[in-house]
């Protein structure tokens, strides 16, 4: 299998007259930790939403080559995209707040297991076996992200770092080929950041799930990502390994010319 996992070709996304993504082309290789960086408003989250089926770009194509074959993502609903093997987290984490941490993960673990309304009503042996299996899977994922202690805590009362990890566990529960992380380190403290970095790497190394992340924290991105794309005003302005990006004049220009200059300089 040599085809890349994600293939984005000439994607343009508009809202009314505003161009959010302008002729973006990129790809992600299998097993890669890829990052997309760029100043605020560069179109990073729009790109994520296009990759997961929340937005449907007007032009271009997005192909996802998951375990179940190639899928053209544009025009597919988010749940279909997820079923094909794309999981995600959200910028401002979106947990099911009135559910416990365990239930949050369980929802992810069971969402693709056939429908079985009748089974659910009658609660037959096979339904019960499925329940046991998903419970075990949810537990193992909670252990994986280090939240087994807080399994029965309402997700709304977890702290930021724990919520981020829980969101990762919930995403992983849907058995994805790739996990999209939208600013996973936002709002976390340095210690939590280190934990997250380790966790994200373990997701790839131990579970074989590719990672695509958006992040503002340059230190985290540069230490984690194997390859980067830089977006500015909806266009890709640079692509390459962290070292190449660091010395790319267009990138420095984009960051110096924006309000993120401080962050970028500090990180670069």
């Amino acid at each position: 299998m040599t085809s890349p996992l994600f293939e984005v070709q000439n994607v343009t996304l508009r809202f009314g007259g505003v161009v959010s993504l302008n002729n973006v082309s990129m790809h992600q290789n299998r097993g890669e930790i890829l990052a997309v960086i760029g100043p605020n408003g560069a179109g990073k989250t729009s790109l994520f939403n296009s990759l997961t089926g929340v937005y449907a770009p007007q032009e271009g194509s997005i192909t996802f080559n998951g375990e179940h074959g190639a899928l053209s993502i544009i025009g597919k609903k988010p749940y279909r995209v997820n079923a094909a093997g794309v999981a995600r987290t959200f910028q401002a984490s979106r947990m099911f707040s009135a559910m416990t941490a365990f239930e949050n993960v369980k929802i992810g673990a069971e969402s693709h297991k056939g429908l079985g309304v009748v089974g659910a009503m009658l609660r037959g042996p096979s339904t019960r076996r499925h329940e046991r299996e998903t419970d075990e899977r949810a537990w193992s994922l909670l252990r994986f992200v280090g939240l087994e202690q807080q399994a029965n805590t309402l997700s709304a009362s977890l702290n930021y770092g724990a919520r981020r990890r829980l969101e990762i566990a919930r995403g992983l529960a849907t058995s994805p080929s790739v996990l999209l992380l939208d600013e996973p380190a936002a709002g976390t403290n340095p210690a939590e950041k280190n934990e997250l970095t380790t966790l994200i790497r373990r997701v790839r190394d131990e579970m074989g799930v590719s990672i695509l992340l958006i992040e503002h924290d340059m230190k985290l991105v540069m230490s984690l990502a194997e390859r980067l794309y830089v977006l500015n005003f909806g266009s890709v302005i640079a692509e390459g390994a962290p070292d190449e990006i660091r010395s790319n004049p267009a990138v420095i220009e984009a960051y110096l010319g924006s309000s993120d200059a401080g962050t970028a300089q500090g990180g670069l």
């Binding site: 929802i107 969402s111 009658l122």
Partner: peptide, 29 residues
């Protein structure tokens, strides 16, 4: 039947949709 349904995958999916439809869709519901 209904209380079995409430505590099943179907019941949990309803809760998820009720709470955050976008997040629910992102986990495949």
């Amino acid at each position: 039947i209904f209380s079995a349904l409430e505590h099943s995958r179907v019941g949990r999916s309803w809760v998820a949709i009720r709470e955050d439809e976008i997040a629910a869709e992102s986990v495949g519901i």
